[in-house]
Amino acid sequence: MTEFFQSLGMSYEWAWGVATVAGILLIALPLMLAVAMIIYADRKIWAAIALRRGPNVVGPFGLLQSFADGLKVFLQETIIPTGANRGLFLIAPIITFTVALMAWAVIPFNSGAVLADINVGLLYILAVSSLGVYGVVLSGWASNSKYPFFSAMRAAAQMISYEVSIGFILVCVVLYADSFNLNEIIKAQQGHGLGIVNAFGFNLLLFPIAVIFLIASLAETARAPFDLTEAESELVAGYQTEYSSMAFALFWLGEYANVLLMATLNAILFWGGWLPPIDWAPLYAVPGIVWLFAKILFFFFVFSWVKATVPRYRYDQLMRLGWKIFLPISLIWIFLISGWLMLTRYS
């Protein structure tokens, strides 16, 4: 895009600056729209599984429900509790929201269609997602209230525990793909399964960790059945209890942007990203972005499906799953995969 702006007669610096800002807007604005629609989709899927109608009043089929909610929240008064730590109380939702958007910088939407094509893309995502915990912890502490604080402690422990096994799973994928760059990882999946299937997930050695990654990404985004941070039967609304108005909306948007990001990561790391599912020439006529979005939507459907059907975990069970089951399995899998690659690829 920089070249395009340079051709309009700008110097390189200006062209680069304008192109970057344009790229950011090109990702962030559709993302916000997608988040609004995905909240609607989430509620509809939920409702369908619970044999209800779901939102159906605002706009045709209730399509504008999220915008109505947004407007309502926007017009509310921002209430800051007297005992709260003002600065941190207001910064916390901003951190959550910003961090949820930051990670999208390295997500490739098509071959070459990526804002920042850096060679440490996956590490960048890991770094950014490890920042997400601050929004939750700070909001819980700054609220100066019991339930939010409990929720913050839970969230911090939960996110750190699951990030460990997510890190190891990412190492397995990197070993197979031979690169940290997300585009390279996707390209490495071309014809990976028997020379025809474009996905790591169909590799028998990688399928188990693909499943673990899906479950761990549920825990990382604090979605049901791991939504202990906002368990309404125990903690009112968790860390968001004291929030109202736009501060609350920022948490909401950030949360769903994170869910979308995790669905995207599942699609990119294990199921071929913007590649069509089968390595067959006519399928490449369809733009890559369509395949990517189809995969993202599929994983989002899985997320809501799980949310609607699986009961909430108990906290000690959650910790047990993270540390005693996922961590050993993912560690063993690194040995397995590196051993296999030593035998087959590098001998």
Binding site: L123, L126, A127, L131, Y134, V137, A152, M153, A156
Partner: peptide, 25 residues
């Protein structure tokens, strides 16, 4: 040194500082 930069964020910001924050809170 992009690798070191990312490690700095992952290790120090993502893990060490969270523990600090925990203790202080």
């Amino acid at each position: 040194a992009e690798f070191i930069a990312m490690l700095l964020v992952i290790v120090y910001v993502g893990a060490v500082a969270v523990l600090f924050l925990f203790v202080v809170m």
